[in-house]
Amino acid sequence: MSPHHVDPAHGTTEEVASVFANAPLIPADEMYALAADFNLDQHPNKVNLGPGSYKDENGQPWILPSVAMSRRKIAEQGLCHEYLPILGLPEFRTKVAKLVLGDTGYQVKESKIASGQTISGTGALHMAGLFLKRFSSLSNDVYISDPTWMNHHGVFKSLGFNCLKYRYYDAETKTLAYESIIQTLESATSGERVGCLLLVSSTEEAAKNSQSALESLTRIEFSNPPAYGARIAATILQDKELVAQWHKDLVTMSSRIADMRDALYQSLSKQTEQDWTHIIRQSGMFGFSGLSPVVVRRLRDESHIYMAESSRISIAGLNPGNVEYVASCIVECLQ
């Protein structure tokens, strides 16, 4: 629609409101805005501790050897460019179900499983929410950990759910808020965030019906999922040699992350009398540093170190070349 309307009788032009005039200005996603600011930063010592992607000891993305081997194997076999079925690559869905449930669990539940390949973990959340909204009589409440990713609330709010928070992290003790989590689990339904949506039902009929409903929703949402990533994963999970290499890759990544977690702890402990044991009590790619929002902003503005305002950091963003710098800057900003 043109933004102007011409009146032929009077030769005048008047402005016409755009059909998009009511679209609100939505705040940028925190982590993507943080990444954009980091990319614009020209400081030579800048450090990005925000994204949830693994980096090697040089701060560069690392292609897992198992993934590289899978790509070569797919290329040698000749890549098929046909559309996937609506529910995705069957062998991918089967292998993911076995990985999540275990071989024994899968054998017991196989006839009671409905599954569908989704577009990323966020896509799995969306499809799970859509399925529950359409076909479940459960409560309209969804419990989401606090803190969490910004888009988790958006996914479920967009589907009409009432999003409630439960405390996941105890800022005072800098540990898991275990009692809060248990209380929430005792009073609410919970689920797992996976790249392939799995619905495990109590009967075969319910699984069959759920599978058909999931297929219908998928067809409406995105017709059918992309093939290449699923083929890479399925190729790995179907090949014993590649599975063994994948396990080695996991050890490579987890070991480096553990080393960097310990290095940060050691450096901070040497420079201050503050207790930093919460850093090594935690595990995984992320960690809560326990820093205040004021310190987080100072680190970004003065030291060019980027992290979520909640003080959650990606340990994978640390490496031997920057961990001492990060620790020293934290100490300086705390003084």
Rank of each mutant, 00 (worst) to 15 (best):
C333E: 15
S190Y: 07
E186D: 12
S2Q: 04
D262G: 13
G284W: 03
E15Y: 04
K112A: 14
Q282L: 11
S202Y: 05
H304F: 01
L64N: 06
D41S: 02
F288S: 12
E302L: 13
D7K: 06
A316W: 00
D103G: 10
T189Y: 04
L89P: 04
A17P: 10
R297V: 11
H278Y: 13
S212D: 11
D146H: 12
S255H: 10
S216V: 05
E172M: 12
S158P: 06
C80S: 10
L299Q: 12
F161A: 09
Q183T: 14
E204L: 05
H4S: 09
E241K: 14
G195H: 01
K98H: 03
S255I: 01
R312M: 14
P147A: 10
S212K: 13
L89Q: 08
A188Y: 01
P24S: 07
E15G: 07
R219G: 12
L268I: 10
L25Y: 10
T203L: 09
H304N: 10
L268M: 13
M69F: 09
S303E: 14
M307K: 06
T184D: 02
I257H: 02
G287T: 14
G229I: 03
A207V: 05
V243L: 14
Q183P: 08
F131M: 06
F288T: 08
I119H: 02
L64W: 02
W246A: 15
L176T: 13
Q266T: 14
Y143V: 13
V331N: 09
E221Y: 11
L49Y: 01
Q335N: 15
D275C: 15
T173I: 12
M150W: 01
S328T: 05
V47K: 00
A21N: 10
A21T: 03
Y83T: 10
S187V: 04
G50S: 00
G287D: 05
S292Y: 00
S139D: 11
T218L: 09
I279W: 08
G52A: 02
Q183D: 14
N319L: 06
K157E: 14
I182M: 12
G105S: 03
L299G: 13
V200I: 09
V142E: 08
L299C: 14
T189D: 09
R281N: 15
L99Y: 06
N22R: 09
R300W: 03
N39R: 02
P51R: 00
P293A: 07
I330P: 01
I232N: 06
S212G: 07
K208N: 14
G123N: 02
A308N: 08
S255G: 06
G191R: 00
G195P: 02
L34N: 04
M69E: 14
R297F: 03
N162L: 05
V96E: 01
C196E: 06
S18K: 09
R312G: 10
R134I: 02
L99F: 05
A17I: 11
V295M: 04
A33E: 06
P90Q: 05
L125P: 04
T252P: 00
